[in-house]
Nucleic acid binder design. Structure first.
Lengths: 111, 111
DNA sequence: CAGCTATATACCTTACGGGGTATATACGTT
DNA sequence: AACGTATATACCCCGTAAGGTATATAGCTG
């Protein structure tokens, strides 16, 4: 687990980040909101912390986690060269997202 | 290998996409630019193609690959909720990138 | 201090994806 | 048709990361 990109490849980690986007949360808050086992949450938070996506502060026995934007900015920066393609496909995104929302179908080709 | 995000977790695939960002390329072109074995390039292209990141057209025995922006737009859209953090950290990104360029140190704690 | 709550870590197991190598397919050239 | 080039696919192997379970650590409360 090295790169910034592989960190956010994990769905639970993206969910955690999205949750933290609105506000600081404790481990327990995350556990409850996302319905994940506590050790799992802690493990993901460790990965996110070590990669700089989040930082924590202590509040009694809890740790409150919050977003650190730098790694996300890095991803945003990586996208820059592709933005010139955006314009032509203004509405194609919605269709794409619709098509992608059902479980990504595995293609069994040439049976 | 399902999600849009896990696709771009792979460094070679990101390199391929970056290469295609500037212009359409054949498999051989990619192979040579990135110094990757040909089967590896073909395999990555297959993954990228099935996930909608690229499309190909035929030119004699070659296949010319080009970017399809939708999945990248999806990532861009996912970043939206975090953009409100950008402003405070205008220059923090550079320092972050500097700090991250050497191999991400694995922490061996409590031996 | 004992016991409770909150969080972190260690350990085991398993699945999956990527690298490498060999081979198949498709088209082009002579 | 035979051969060469371009690309795709099949197969095997291995590392690694995620899930689950158990346990350790830290702080609070009585």
């Amino acid at each position: 687990m090295e790169s910034t990109f592989s960190i956010i490849a994990e769905p639970s980690r993206r969910a955690i980040l999205s949750l933290l986007a609105s506000a600081e949360q404790s481990v327990g808050d995350i556990e409850e909101h996302l319905q994940l086992p506590q050790p799992s949450v802690s493990k993901h938070l460790r990965v996110l912390r070590e990669a700089g996506f989040v930082e924590s502060r202590v509040d009694a026995q809890r740790r409150l986690y919050r977003i650190r934007p730098e790694p996300l900015m890095e991803i945003d920066a990586w996208l820059a060269p592709f933005r010139r393609y955006w314009s032509q496909h203004l509405d194609a995104l919605e269709r794409h997202l619709d098509r992608m929302s059902p479980p990504p179908r595995r293609k069994r080709k040439k049976k």
